[in-house]
Design a protein around this nucleic acid. Sequence first.
DNA 1: TTGAAAGCGCTAACAA
DNA 2: TTGTTAGCGCTTTCAA
Lengths: 340, 340
Amino acid sequence: MESKPNIQDVARHANVSIATVSRVINNQGGVRKATEEKILKAIDELGYIRSAAARIMKRKETNTIGVIVPDIKNPFFPLVMAGIEEKAREKGYFTILSSTSESPIVEEKIVKNFIERGVDGVIITTANENGEHLKLLQEQNIPIVAVDRSIKSFDVDTVLVDNVKGSYQAVQHLILQGHKEIGIICGPENTTPGLERFLGYKKALEDYNIPFDENYVVMGDFGERSGYQATKVLFELDDKPTAIFSSNNLMTIGCMKALEDLKWKLGSEVSFIGFDDVDIATFLNPKLSVVARPMNAIGEIAFQLLYERISFKESIPKREYLLAPELKIRQSCQLVKTAF
Amino acid sequence: MESKPNIQDVARHANVSIATVSRVINNQGGVRKATEEKILKAIDELGYIRSAAARIMKRKETNTIGVIVPDIKNPFFPLVMAGIEEKAREKGYFTILSSTSESPIVEEKIVKNFIERGVDGVIITTANENGEHLKLLQEQNIPIVAVDRSIKSFDVDTVLVDNVKGSYQAVQHLILQGHKEIGIICGPENTTPGLERFLGYKKALEDYNIPFDENYVVMGDFGERSGYQATKVLFELDDKPTAIFSSNNLMTIGCMKALEDLKWKLGSEVSFIGFDDVDIATFLNPKLSVVARPMNAIGEIAFQLLYERISFKESIPKREYLLAPELKIRQSCQLVKTAF
DNA sequence: TTGAAAGCGCTAACAA
DNA sequence: TTGTTAGCGCTTTCAA
C-alpha cells in the first residue's frame, strides 16, 4: 500500500502474467474463470487502479471530453453542462469542465491542457470567437463543438439559439404594445449573442418604422454590474425610454436592481423584456416577460454532435443547429399610455 | 500533420536529440540559444504539444485537482468552484469538475476516473458522507478536502459553514419577533447540512422554551420541488405556522412559488427566513431575510488546504474550518400580531 | 488459455 | 552543451 500498485504487482500477487491481468481488467474474455477470480481478488486486495496515463499512451483514446465555458457563475452554463453530462454519461464518456473567466489567454492554456490530457473532443463557448487560439485543436484533429458562440476562423459544428429571432420577437412584442422609445442593454459586440441580439432589436425597429436612436443603445458586458449601470444611463436620458430590452440574464438582474434603486416603476413607468429566463422573473411584480432558451437541450445536442464527430471522424460536413427560443409573455410589458 | 507529432519528430526536425528538446519544453536551461530557437521553431512548425500521459507516467504529478459536486445546477457550487479555480490558477494548478447528481454510484465512478487520471488532490462535496467509497483515494494517498459535507469514515481536511449557528440565529431572530409556531423545511437528515440546520432550529426552540412540534418539521431533499411541496404541507396544517425556515437556496425558491400559488402572504401572514442567500431575495416584497454563506471564501480555503496537503504530504494533522454564516436581516420576518 | 516482449512518448540520470 | 538510454505502466501482437 506504500505507493500505488501497478499491473506487475497484481500479476505477481495472482501468480499470472501481466497480459492476463490486462485481459481481465479490460473484460476481453478468453480467461479461465478460476484465473479471473484469482486476479480480481488480487486487484481488490491491493486496491489496484489502472493508470490512465499508461493506458492512454497505448490507446490514444481517453473517453473524456472537455467543456470550456467563459463564466461558470452564469447559471446558463451549469444548466447546459448538466445536459452535456447526462448524455455523455450514457455513452460512457467523462466530462471535465473548466472556466476561462472570459479570458482568451486562460482559454488557450486550458485548451492546451486539454490536448495534453488527450481529450477526445471539446465543447466550447469561447471567449474569443475569432478562434485563432483554437487552431491547435484543429491541427491535432480533435473534434470541436461550439455552443452559444460560433467560431470564425474555421469550420466547426455549432449549436446556437436563434438570437436574432429571439430578440426580434421580444422587441416586436414591445412595439405591438405601443412602445416606440425602446432602450437596449447590449452584450459585447464581438460576441455572436451580443451582436445578434442587437441586430434583432434593430430589425424589429426597422420593420415597424420606428426610428433608431443611438441614445437608447447602451453597452454592457453580460455581467450584472453592467446591467445596473446601463439602466442608470437610460434613466438619465432626457427622453427616457418607455421600455427596456436586456440582452442576457445577469444584466436583467442588474437592471432590476437599478430600477428599484431609481424608483423607476417596472410595468407602469417602464416596460421590460429580457433575453434568458431568470429565477427572479416570476417573483417580481409585475412578472418579467422573457425570451427563454432550452439550456438542457443545448447541452444534449452539443454532446450528440461531438459524439458523432468522435465516432466517425471523417467526412461529416459542418453542421449548425439553430434552436428556437421561446417568448414567455408575462406581465412586464404593458400597453403604452397614449395621450388622448 | 497526419497524426500528432511527438518529441521524436521535433528532434528530427530540429536535428537534435530528444533530450535537448525535453530540456527546452521544460525550461530547464543549459541549452544554447541558437539550439533552443531551432527547437522552438520546429515545435511551432509541427504544432507539437507534449503528451500529458507520457509525462505523467514519469513525473507522477499532474498539477491537476479534481472537484466533485453533487449538483452543478445548484448555484452554490459554481460559486465555490469559482473560488477554487481562482486560487488554483494562481498556483499553477488545473481544476477539473464533475457532478454526481447526488448519486454515490456515479461519485464512485468519478473518483475512480480521477484517480486513473492521477489528480494530485480532490475537493469534494460528497453524495454519501459515510465515505466508504472514498477509501480508494485514501489508499492511494491522494489528499482530500471535504466541503460543506464532512466525511465520516476517515479523517480529511474539512471546510464547513457553521450550520447549527446559522440556523440557530435564523430561528432565534424569528422567535424574537414573537413567533412560536415555526415551520422548518429540512434537508436530508443524512447530510451534515440537512441535519445540522435542523439541530440549530431545535436548539433555538429549546433555549427559548418553545415546545417542539413534529408537525412543523417537513422533510425536503434540497431541491426546488420539495421546497414547494413542503410549503403546501405546512399550509394545510390546522395550526398553520406563523413563520417558516427553509434549509437551503433551492427549497427557498420552491417555498416562494408555493406561497404565491397558495396566496399565503409573505410577511403579513407568514414570516420567512432561509439558509443561503438567493437572487430572488431582494426582489420579493418584503425582501427575504437569509443566512448567507461566503461561497467564494469557502472555495479559496478549500484549495489552500488541499494545496498544503499536496505540498507537504506528511504530518499535517486533520484541519477543520468552520466559517461563520452571516445573518442578513431584510423584511420577511415580521413581528407577530399578538391579540390584546 | 496463457505468457513474453515490443513499444506508446516522455523525463532524467549518466556519459561524452 | 548535447546525446544515449533506461524505464514509467499499460495494451497488444505473436508464440506457446
